[in-house]
Amino acid sequence: MTADPAVGRAAPPTGYRLLLPDDWAQIPLRRGDTEAAVRALVASAFARVPSDVPRDRLTPLRLELERRLLTAVAEARKADALEMYLPVKTAGEVNLGASFTVSNVRLPARAGVEGVAAQVTDPTDVAVQLLARDRTHGSELDLSSGEVDGAIAVRRERVVPADLERGAELATRRVEYLVSVPGDPEQWLVAAFSAIGAGDPRDDLADAMVEWFDALMRTFRWSWT
C-alpha cells in the first residue's frame, strides 16, 4: 500500500508494512479470535510433521507449544502490542527462540507553565532525551539514532536476564526500534525483537538473528489509505 499523493505526508500514516519472509507468521493481538489464530498456527505446523511420527508423542508437545504461545500472546497484550510475529520453520515446527511485537506508544503530556500541558517535544529532541536517559544503564545497553523510512528513530539493544517469576527461563537479547510517527509528534511506534540464541543471548545465533531483524527493519515502510 502506498501513500495517496492527494493526501500528502502531513497526515499521520494509517499503518505500516514489512517485507516479512514466508517462514514468519503475524498474529494480530487486537482481535477476539487471537487465541483461535494461535491454535490454528500450531495445528498447521504439526500437520506437516511426517506421518511416521507417533501421534501420542506429538500431542503433549502440541499442547505445551500452545500453552507457551498463548502465554507469550498474553504478555504482549499486557504491553498493548498491536501484532506479534513468530518464525515458523518449513519442517513444521514453530521456533520460540525469537519473536517480535509492534506497538503504538503515545507520549504523556508534560506539565508546562502554571500546570498547563505543554506541547510534545519535537521527535529529534525526544530522541536525544531517550539516548541521554538510557545511557545511564551502562555497557549492557547499545544505543543509536537514525531514520526509519524518513522518520526519526532510536535503536536500543541489551541483554535481559532470566526472570523465573515472569516465566522467562533464559536470558534474552532484546532490540527495540522506537520510531516517531510522521504527522503525530505525540505518537511513536515500537518494534521490539527478542531472541535467546542457542541458549546464550550473546552467541553467534543470537548475533545472526539480530542482524536479520535489523535488515527487516530496513524494509519498514509507512502506509496511507
Rank of each mutant, 00 (worst) to 15 (best):
E66W: 11
F100C: 07
V160H: 02
R158K: 09
M84C: 04
R174T: 14
S51P: 01
R57V: 11
R156C: 09
G115F: 10
G112I: 04
A72L: 14
V120C: 03
P108V: 10
P50Y: 06
D80Y: 10
A117R: 10
R133Q: 10
G112Y: 03
R77S: 02
V128K: 06
V190L: 13
V42I: 08
W188V: 13
V190N: 02
S139L: 12
T172Y: 04
A132N: 08
V154F: 02
N104Q: 15
R77F: 01
D80G: 07
L63G: 01
E83F: 12
W188Q: 09
F100E: 06
A98S: 14
D184G: 04
L170F: 11
P182R: 13
S139Y: 03
S144N: 03
S180K: 11
A74L: 07
D52Y: 14
E176R: 14
S51R: 13
E157I: 03
K78A: 10
D122N: 13
A45Q: 05
P182V: 09
A127E: 04
G183V: 09
V102K: 02
S144R: 14
F46T: 11
V49M: 09
Y177G: 03
P182T: 09
E157C: 04
P50K: 12
L130A: 12
L63F: 00
P108M: 10
A162W: 09
T124V: 15
T136M: 08
R155H: 05
P54I: 03
D125E: 14
G97Q: 06
A47S: 11
P60I: 10
L82N: 04
F46E: 06
K78I: 05
S180T: 13
A72H: 07
D134V: 13
R62D: 01
T121S: 13
V102P: 04
V102D: 02
D163Y: 05
S103T: 13
A45I: 07
V126G: 01
S44A: 15
T121H: 06
G167L: 14
H137P: 00
V53W: 02
D125Q: 15
P60T: 07
V94N: 06
A117F: 08
Q187F: 05
G115K: 09
G146S: 08
E75G: 10
F100L: 08
R55C: 00
L65D: 00
V49F: 06
G146P: 05
L170D: 07
L96W: 03
R135P: 07
S180I: 13
G115T: 11
L189W: 01
K78S: 07
L65F: 02
V190H: 00
V175I: 07
P87V: 09
T136N: 06
T136P: 00
L86N: 01
V73S: 01
R135F: 04
P50I: 13
P182K: 10
L178F: 05
A117W: 06
V159G: 03
H137S: 07
V49G: 01
A118Q: 06
V120T: 13
G183A: 05
